[in-house]
Each structure stands twice: as structure tokens, then as C-alpha cells.
């Protein structure tokens, strides 16, 4: 159950961004969680919702996007989605698979309610 400390890191990062970019209100924090990141999304959501109370992010929604595991075969070069954590190439059956996606634990972007011309923001 390390999701609570991860939720705290997300909260702290968002608060820092809020201060440094002078964002008036963050409506949503979008995080990317890889299927092999070791993070349970329900526990992360629970932790975030508990920690955000009585902070400037009390009204902020945490949106968790799960990222499936993808692999690259270093023998034949095939790129594919790894299903059921079976790291074997569907084309040549090789087990030498580089994981290209699926271990992410990233804050992707914040959704902010403000004018689109504000500094530091992209549409």
C-alpha cells in the first residue's frame, strides 16, 4: 500500500505547479499509470481523495489513465501489445522483449479553468 505516498507526491507536484504557474484552479489532474507500474488505481484514487481534503485541490479530480504494456522484440523487431504479461514475440516467439510502455507513473497534464492565452498553457 504505497499508493498513499504516491498520491501525496501527485498532490505536492500539482500544488507546486499551481503556485509556480499561478494557476487559479486545477479541475483535473491526469496521470498515466502503466499496467506494470505496481500501482493499484483504486488505491491511488482512494488515497488522493482522502489527502486532497482541506487543500487548494479539494475540488480537483484525479483522472487515472491506464497504459497497457507494449513490447519490442529485439530479435525480429516486431512491436506489439503484451497480453497477460506474456513477454514473448507473437511473430518469432522470441523471449527477448524490450518493454516500451507499461511501467509509467507520470503526471501527464493538468486541466485548468482559465483563459487559453494564459502563460505556460497549451490548448
Amino acid at each position: 500500500m504505497h499508493e498513499l505516498s504516491i498520491a501525496q507526491s501527485i498532490l505536492n507536484t500539482a500544488l507546486q505547479e499551481m503556485a509556480s504557474r499561478q494557476l487559479p484552479r486545477i479541475s483535473k489532474i491526469v496521470v498515466h499509470v502503466g499496467a506494470l507500474s505496481g500501482v493499484v488505481p483504486e488505491a491511488l484514487q482512494f488515497g488522493f481523495d482522502a489527502l486532497k481534503k482541506q487543500t487548494p485541490l479539494e475540488g480537483t479530480e484525479l483522472s487515472i489513465e491506464m497504459i497497457p504494456v507494449r513490447g519490442h522484440c529485439t530479435d525480429c523487431g516486431a512491436d506489439f501489445e503484451v497480453e497477460n504479461f506474456a513477454f514473448s514475440c507473437p511473430q518469432c516467439q522470441s523471449g527477448h522483449i524490450q518493454m516500451t510502455r507499461g511501467d509509467e507513473l507520470n503526471i501527464a497534464y493538468l486541466e485548468v479553468e482559465e483563459e487559453p492565452s494564459a502563460s505556460g498553457a497549451t490548448s
Binding site: 507513473l105 497534464y109 483563459e115
Partner: peptide, 13 residues
């Protein structure tokens, strides 16, 4: 009007 602010930061950076 909702705007997206890109962060792309690892949580455990």
C-alpha cells in the same frame, strides 16, 4: 474554458 497544462513528470522523479 478548460485548458490543458502539460506536465509530463514522473511521480517518483
Amino acid at each position: 474554458m478548460a485548458t490543458q497544462v502539460k506536465i509530463e513528470k514522473k511521480v517518483l522523479s
